[in-house]
Design a protein around this nucleic acid. Structure first.
Length: 568
DNA sequence: GCCGTTTTCGGCCCGACTGTTTTCAGTCG
């Protein structure tokens, strides 16, 4: 799949063009990059069929550049831009307050190419002499370099969400506040988020602002105004708050939930209908026709309500207009968690505690799936121990009325695709989860073949964390996902959406691809402690972002139906 | 550079805030 590479180069071209004054050309390249990014088919296939220019936002020129990238790995235009502006644009953009125009100025006047150059020139007070710069700006840049170095990447949704909820609760507790909502990419359940965005309605904006910037969580105030403030929290994450009237809260919610790409789309639709959409409402002439609730705005534009997780301009707008949006999976639909560890292997809690946690979540069933023999590092269970645990589970099942514990194992897929537990033992298990834990970089075909071999074992029910990625640590392994999806569909192997905040694997777009291949899914937590059972909301969020419906996810079935689905 | 139920030319989303400005450009979301 060259899609990612093509999108990346198109985006880079847009970066460079931002330094020139051709704003609309930048837009065109961004749009094209986005189109490629959200494709669920290979860009090479589309190219071979000669259908590149049929894609939205891709015309003759950009199609030509994509062709170059496919055929020779890069495009001349891109190489020329790199020569013209030999700056580390991405790195410099990471500095708050540094945009394309300033980066260009800094390069042309002072030869600044990266953070080190910037720091040096700022310390020498060379920057304040430039046009449009001053001592305040120079000082701010110097301070912001520190953060650009420290927090180069985005933050994990699973780590930021609890913090966001905490801030929300505190503001909600103020007598002056009315409605409080977390918006932005957190509301869209994007796997990584840049900052925390909070919206509030209140009769006394000033009080809310004063409280917000003085919270003990705040490290530094970046912007403070009557309707908008930005702070940097002590742990480095930025947090924005904005105040709106109750009458326009829906419009503000929609606007600040984004994505930016969907907002642009929504505004275009409004304009085509002689209306104007902003964070202050949907207007016909000067009259506001909707704004209090998000639903009102969608309906006024004659489309269905789009759930936040879908708002990425990946076809959801069109689907909403046609009334063809999927009925997305909900957290409440999940009837059981099928991937749990206890202190029998590398979990923190006892078997009983994990089951108790599952009961507390209201599950009908739960599968205990410890690591197995060959995974020594995770205290993997041998066959004898596994059977011993099975007897323990039998005993617990006799005692418990509210839940059924399924016997399981997370078996390791060896280098040759074999499992580390014999079939005779696996046959005794209710749920067998198979996963690759080591040797992820043994080559493209090897890994794909290993996984396919494991899926073809009829005892295997679920392929866990299929790509093995770890956010901000390890890329998706280079497996042939199309082949894996095809085999999963043929063998009836369930593909896992793993809810661990670091994994979220399959990721959103791969969920969508898998569903297009006719695969069935399960959403599991892979919990290693009772507390981690709550991560299910992250997995469900990811599945929703991949357009998964209840009918696509097998652990939404009641126990009987689920067991039947496993056998089929 | 792309696009077309007013268009093949003339549009392309827009408001808040800051800093360096004597009326606005740049950045951010």
């Amino acid at each position: 799949m060259l899609n990612e590479k093509v999108a990346k180069i198109l985006n880079s071209i847009a970066d460079y063009l931002e330094m020139e004054d051709d704003f609309f050309r930048v837009k065109a390249y961004r749009q094209a990059a986005h189109t490629v990014e959200v494709l669920t088919t290979d860009i090479e296939t589309i190219h071979q069929e000669g259908k590149l220019i049929k894609l939205p936002g891709i015309g003759q020129h950009i199609a030509g550049k994509i062709e170059e990238i496919i055929e020779k790995g890069t495009a001349d235009f891109y190489e020329k831009l790199k020569e013209k502006y030999p700056v580390n644009f991405e790195e410099l953009r990471g500095v708050e307050g540094l945009g394309p125009k300033t980066i260009k100025l800094l390069y042309q006047e002072l030869g600044i190419k990266n953070l080190d150059d910037l720091e040096r020139e700022a310390k020498r007070h060379h920057i304040r002499r430039l046009k449009g710069m001053g001592d305040k700006k120079e000082k701010a840049l110097l301070e912001n370099i520190v953060f650009a170095r420290k927090f180069r990447s985005r933050n994990l949704l699973g780590e930021v969400m609890p913090l966001a909820e905490k801030i929300k609760k505190r503001i909600e507790a103020l007598p002056q506040s009315r409605k409080v909502e977390i918006v932005g990419s957190i509301r869209r359940r994007k796997e990584t988020v840049g900052d925390i965005d909070v919206l509030v309605t209140t009769p006394q904006p000033q009080d809310i602002m004063d409280y917000f910037v003085s919270m003990d969580l705040v490290g530094e105030i970046i912007v403070q105004g009557p309707s908008k403030s930005t702070v940097r929290l002590k742990d480095g994450i930025e947090c924005d708050i904005r105040v709106f009237d109750e009458e326009v809260f829906g419009a503000a919610l929609m606007y600040f939930t984004g994505s930016k790409e969907m907002n642009v789309e929504m505004r275009k639709i409004s304009i085509s209908r002689g209306m104007k959409l902003s964070e202050y409402g949907l207007f016909k002439k000067e009259k506001r026709v909707a704004g209090k609730k998000e639903e009102d705005i969608f309906h006024a534009l004659e489309m269905d309500y789009i759930p936040p997780e879908l708002r990425e301009n990946r076809g959801e707008v069109e689907a909403a207009q046609k009334g063809e949006l999927p009925l997305l999976l909900k957290v409440e639909d999940i009837k059981g968690d099928l991937h749990l560890h206890s202190n029998w292997s590398d979990g923190k809690n006892t078997l009983e505690e994990m089951v108790l946690g599952a009961i507390f979540k209201g599950y009908e069933y739960v599968a205990i799936t410890e690591h197995t023999g060959s995974l020594k590092i995770a205290n993997g269970l041998g066959e004898e121990k596994l059977m011993q645990q099975a007897r323990e589970i039998d005993r617990l099942n006799d005692e418990l009325e509210n839940i059924t514990i399924l016997k399981g194992a997370e078996v390791n897929i060896d280098l040759d695709g074999r499992l580390d537990i014999r079939d005779e033992v696996l046959q005794e298990m209710d749920v067998v989860v198979a996963a690759v834990h080591s040797g992820l970089n043994q080559g493209y075909f090897d890994l794909t073949r290993r996984i396919v071999t494991a899926m073809e074992n009829e005892n295997v029910d679920i392929l866990a964390h299929p790509t093995g990625r770890k956010l901000q640590k390890r890329k998706e392994s280079e497996v042939n996902l199309n082949q894996i999806f095809d085999v999963a569909q043929e063998t009836g192997t369930l593909l896992e959406v793993n809810s661990n905040p670091v994994r979220l694997d399959l990721r959103d777009m791969n969920v969508k691809r898998a569903l297009e291949h006719g695969c069935k899914l399960v959403v599991n937590t892979d919990a290693h402690s009772q507390n981690q059972l709550n991560n299910i909301q992250l997995g469900v969020g990811t599945a929703r972002r991949g357009w998964a419906q209840k009918k696509d996810v097998v652990n939404t079935l009641p126990l009987k139906g689920f067991l039947k689905a496993l056998k089929d």
